[in-house]
Design a protein around this nucleic acid. Structure first.
Lengths: 212, 212
DNA sequence: TCGATAGATTAACGCTGTTAACTTAATGCT
DNA sequence: AGCATTAAGTTAACAGCGTTAATCTATCGA
């Protein structure tokens, strides 16, 4: 029962079929279940058929990453409507953390995996690039003069905020089930990190978060 | 030319030989070079000989982790002689980051890899356990009353500090070569994170680091 | 009606971690 | 001293992986 000529739309459909199967596999059964043979079995294809649509396993995974990364970007860009820059910044950190913990396997793939090449980001829609969005809001806070005067490099500030939130999330994802550590509630850890970053970076040592 | 009966010390030696070969392999050639066959070739053994000394690849790697983790612990415990608790805490964060960046492959194995079981820590000498050391110094700072009064949980504070430093280091290790991000100098990122954590957590909004 | 071709499959290669069976030299026992 | 036992190590082999090459077959254009 092999071949019938496929339209461009049908090819797209087959491609999406593979992508979704691969995504669901590692979301539900973990990254180690994502083998070419496993993906193929799931959709009733032969293992090698995947190679008609994707160069190799890495680019397949990479394409999933780009899509999910843009989903994160979409989630974050919704926050750009918050007018007060500091509140916008804090909510962005919070939203970022929520994405990481709701989709730990996605997050691990995007930010916790070493990429031999294609370092993500190249194919990302700039409007949905989470880092660019963070830069924008940090720059807004900077322009408004809310940071300590000794902090004169928005890029450095943004990277520090990113590192703080990422640290909480990645530790939770990788070691959150280690019984050797007496972990406190993850919500408390996120909240304290956000509070520490704002108090540590802003002019106002007593800044209290208003929204949410 | 096979076997001669080996004393316990000789067994230890063979075990260490395997461990060192495995460690050097992934330090120099990266984690993907660490295959049982590669390790064996390096020391002139047959691949299966390794299984006489280690149950499987995971426990072999795990044993390397424990050793290197204790090395980090030793490095950190040297700082316990600093009498002023806050300075001790800051230097501990700094020293931790230096370990992470000097031995990125070690660090990746210890803190950035998902362990199916044996979550490290079980076999660690408590005196060389980095987390315990951090807890001790955070508790000292807490007892001395240097934290903001609203922060009444030393464990939560310690985990936040850890997360902050770990975030800087793990982002650098995993994405530090991503040309898509305009990375600032890593030393600046470490310094700003330490400054932000101290200002964010301590009572004193103008605390300036003294030593080093 | 007859190639040509697109879509998919089977076979196969070299790699991996790991187990089973085998080899060989030294030891303990009688 | 001679012989079975055993410890240390090797070779062979299995199942699974990503991937490439060769093959098959139903449809399309002429």
């Amino acid at each position: 029962m092999p071949p019938k000529v496929k339209s461009e739309a049908e090819k797209q459909k087959a491609s999406a079929l593979i992508l979704d199967a691969a995504r669901e596999l590692f979301v539900t059964k973990g990254i180690e279940a994502v083998t070419m043979r496993e993906i193929a079995k799931k959709i009733g294809y032969s293992p090698t058929t995947i190679y008609l649509y994707f160069k190799d396993k890495e680019t397949l995974i990479h394409e999933i990453c780009v899509k999910d990364f843009e989903q994160l970007g979409g989630q974050l860009s919704g926050l750009m409507q918050i007018e007060e820059p500091v509140e916008r910044m804090i909510n962005m950190g919070d939203s970022y953390a929520r994405f990481a913990l709701n989709y730990p396997n996605h997050y691990r793939m995007i930010f916790m995996t070493r990429w031999s090449e294609c370092p993500l980001g190249d194919d990302i829609d700039p409007g949905k690039d989470g880092y660019q969005l963070l830069m924008q809001v940090v720059e807004a806070v900077y322009e408004a003069g809310h940071f300590l005067p000794e902090h004169d490099n928005p890029e450095l500030i943004a990277q520090t905020i990113w590192a703080g939130i990422h640290g909480v999330c990645s530790l939770q994802i990788n070691m959150g089930h280690d019984p050797h550590i007496n972990w406190t509630d993850i919500e408390d850890r996120i909240a304290l990190m956000l509070a520490t970053l704002t108090r540590g970076l802003l002019k106002y040592p007593n800044y209290k978060r208003k929204l949410k």
